[in-house]
Simulated scan of single mutants.
Amino acid sequence: MIIKILGSGCTNCKKLYANTKEAVEKVAVDAEIIKVEDIKDIMAYGVMRTPAIVINEKVKMYGKVSSADEIVKYIQDEK
């Protein structure tokens, strides 16, 4: 599973990355977490507000910081 965190590297992006890491550990899924900070790459997903989370190339959420429990649900939807 590939999980991408889209954002410029701001505080909210870092918090979303940490929450994603926690969620992956809770679910014990084999996942690679990638930070995407290039604005052109972010725009390619049609995301207009960051941070955002993309799992297996599907945008799951954007414009807020999801909790680890919310991210667990996104991961389970993609299993």
Score class of each variant (00 low, 15 high):
residue 28 A to C: 14
residue 74 Y to V: 04
residue 22 E to Y: 05
residue 49 R to C: 08
residue 78 E to F: 03
residue 48 M to Y: 03
residue 22 E to K: 15
residue 43 M to I: 01
residue 65 V to S: 10
residue 77 D to K: 09
residue 37 E to Y: 00
residue 10 C to L: 02
residue 32 E to R: 11
residue 53 I to Y: 05
residue 2 I to S: 03
residue 32 E to A: 08
residue 53 I to M: 03
residue 65 V to L: 11
residue 16 L to Y: 04
residue 32 E to K: 13
residue 29 V to C: 15
residue 48 M to Q: 10
residue 30 D to G: 14
residue 42 I to L: 11
residue 16 L to D: 10
residue 79 K to L: 13
residue 55 I to R: 07
residue 30 D to W: 08
residue 34 I to L: 11
residue 68 A to P: 15
residue 9 G to Y: 04
residue 53 I to Q: 04
residue 33 I to S: 09
residue 32 E to W: 02
residue 26 K to D: 05
residue 34 I to C: 07
residue 2 I to A: 04
residue 16 L to R: 07
residue 20 T to P: 14
residue 45 Y to D: 01
residue 33 I to W: 02
residue 61 M to H: 09
residue 13 C to N: 11
residue 39 I to F: 00
residue 74 Y to L: 09
residue 75 I to Q: 12
residue 57 E to P: 11
residue 47 V to M: 09
residue 35 K to L: 03
residue 3 I to R: 06
residue 71 I to K: 09
residue 33 I to C: 05
residue 25 E to Q: 12
residue 66 S to T: 04
residue 59 V to S: 10
residue 34 I to S: 04
residue 55 I to D: 10
residue 47 V to T: 04
residue 12 N to K: 15
residue 41 D to K: 08
residue 52 A to V: 01
residue 53 I to T: 02
residue 18 A to C: 05
residue 30 D to H: 10
residue 77 D to S: 14
residue 23 A to Y: 07
residue 41 D to P: 00
residue 22 E to I: 10
residue 12 N to H: 07
residue 36 V to D: 03
residue 41 D to L: 04
residue 77 D to V: 03
residue 30 D to N: 15
residue 71 I to L: 14
residue 5 I to S: 07
residue 70 E to L: 14
residue 58 K to Y: 06
residue 41 D to H: 00
residue 58 K to P: 12
residue 28 A to H: 15
residue 15 K to W: 00
residue 54 V to T: 02
residue 50 T to R: 10
residue 13 C to Q: 07
residue 51 P to Q: 08
residue 31 A to F: 02
residue 2 I to D: 10
residue 17 Y to P: 11
residue 51 P to I: 01
residue 21 K to C: 04
residue 77 D to L: 06
